[in-house]
Simulated scan of single mutants.
Amino acid sequence: MILATTKVKDLDHFLEVFSTKGADKRGSHGSQGATVYRDPIEEDRVWAVFNWDEEGWTAFATDPETPGIMQEAGHLGRPSLGQYLGSFDA
């Protein structure tokens, strides 16, 4: 799993691109899907939890087509990744 956060220009437009072109590109690099949340304090910030491994994320991040898709989606900067600390039972 990978947790990422980013700020976007327009949430609806971001979700449209994220769920189509972005999904196709992520899938081509092994992503098994994503769950997206809107930040409760910063309305222009989204959080995504990806069912993805580090190798696939790195391949996606270095794909030459990725910056154009992210620009089209309206990212206001590069996504930041959360640092994985562990998994815990209930």
Rank of each mutant, 00 (worst) to 15 (best):
T66F: 04
A4C: 05
F60N: 12
A48S: 10
P67E: 11
V17N: 05
A34H: 15
G27S: 12
L76D: 02
Q71M: 09
F18N: 08
D89K: 07
D89G: 11
G30C: 10
G27C: 01
I69K: 14
A90F: 09
E43G: 08
T66V: 06
D44N: 14
D89C: 03
D53A: 12
S80E: 15
F50A: 14
G82Q: 06
E43A: 03
N51W: 09
A59F: 05
A23K: 09
D24W: 03
A90T: 03
D89I: 01
S80W: 04
K7Y: 07
H29S: 08
Q71K: 15
E65M: 08
G86M: 15
A4F: 07
L11K: 14
F14M: 06
K9E: 08
A59T: 08
W52D: 00
L11H: 14
E43R: 03
G22V: 01
R45H: 02
A61N: 13
F88R: 05
A34G: 11
N51E: 15
D63M: 02
T6P: 04
P64W: 12
A59N: 08
S31F: 04
T20A: 10
A34R: 13
Y37D: 04
T66S: 15
S80M: 04
W52F: 07
P79N: 08
G33S: 08
W47S: 10
D24F: 05
E65S: 15
F14H: 14
R38P: 00
D89T: 03
E65L: 06
T66I: 04
E16R: 09
R45G: 00
E43M: 02
Y37V: 00
K7E: 14
F88T: 06
G30A: 09
T35M: 06
R26N: 08
W57Y: 15
A90D: 09
I41R: 02
T6I: 13
A59W: 05
L76P: 00
T58W: 06
F14R: 07
T5N: 11
R26P: 05
E65C: 02
D24M: 07
G22E: 13
M1V: 10
L76W: 02
G30R: 11
L81Q: 11
G86S: 12
A34Y: 09
D10W: 11
Q71G: 08
H75L: 14
D12S: 06
K25H: 13
G82H: 13
L11T: 02
D89E: 12
G33F: 04
A4E: 11
G82I: 02
F88H: 13
V8Q: 12
